[in-house]
Amino acid sequence: MSYYNKRNQEPLPKEDVSTWECTKEDCIGWSRKNFAGSDTPTCPLCGSKMIDGVRSLVNLQNNSQTASS
């Protein structure tokens, strides 16, 4: 019988991902752009304006968005 061990998995590669970052200095809110619902969202934590940003993250695909061709 074999057992599954998470520690034997290779770490997922990280890449620069476009994000929305909260502008409020003491707020840690952010969101991946491909998961945000609107063009210029407000912070889900404090309601402040969000600006463009980039983070080094594991890339995730948002399958709920419809592809426009």
Results as ranks from 00 to 15, higher is better:
Lys6Pro: 10
Gly37His: 09
Asn8Asp: 15
Leu45Gly: 00
Asn8Ile: 09
Val58Leu: 01
Lys49Glu: 15
Pro13Val: 09
Val54Gln: 12
Pro11Asp: 08
Ser48Met: 10
Trp30Thr: 05
Ser56Thr: 04
Cys43Arg: 03
Ala67Asn: 05
Pro11Leu: 06
Ser18Phe: 09
Thr40Leu: 05
Lys33Asp: 00
Asn8Ala: 11
Lys33Leu: 00
Asp52Trp: 02
Leu12Cys: 11
Glu10Ile: 08
Cys22Gln: 03
Ala67Ile: 12
Met50Pro: 04
Ser18Asp: 15
Asn59Asp: 12
Gly53Thr: 03
Pro13Trp: 06
Glu21Ser: 08
Arg55His: 14
Leu57Arg: 01
Ile28Val: 10
Cys43Ile: 06
Gln61Ala: 13
Arg55Glu: 11
Gly47Asn: 09
Ile51Glu: 12
Val17Ala: 07
Thr23Val: 07
Ser2Leu: 11
Asn63Tyr: 04
Leu57His: 14
Glu25Tyr: 00
Trp30Gly: 08
Ala67Leu: 14
Gly47Met: 05
Gly47Leu: 09
Met1Gly: 14
Lys33Glu: 00
Asp52Ala: 10
Tyr4Arg: 10
Trp30Ala: 07
Thr42Ser: 14
Met50Gln: 05
Lys49His: 13
Glu25Gln: 07
Glu10Leu: 13
Tyr4Ile: 11
Asp39Glu: 15
Asp16Gly: 03
Leu57Trp: 05
Cys22Pro: 07
Thr40Tyr: 13
Gly37Asn: 07
Thr66His: 11
Val54Phe: 04
Ser64Glu: 15
Thr42Glu: 06
Asp52Val: 01
Leu60Val: 03
Gly29Ser: 03
Phe35Arg: 00
Pro11Tyr: 02
Ser64Asn: 13
Gly47Thr: 00
Thr23His: 01
Val54Pro: 02
Gly47Pro: 04
Glu21Ile: 08
Gly53Pro: 06
Asn62Arg: 06
Gln61His: 12
Asp26Gly: 02
Thr19Lys: 03
Ser18Cys: 07
Leu12Ala: 11
Glu10Trp: 09
Ser31Met: 15
Met50Asn: 05
Ser38Cys: 09
Asn5Thr: 03
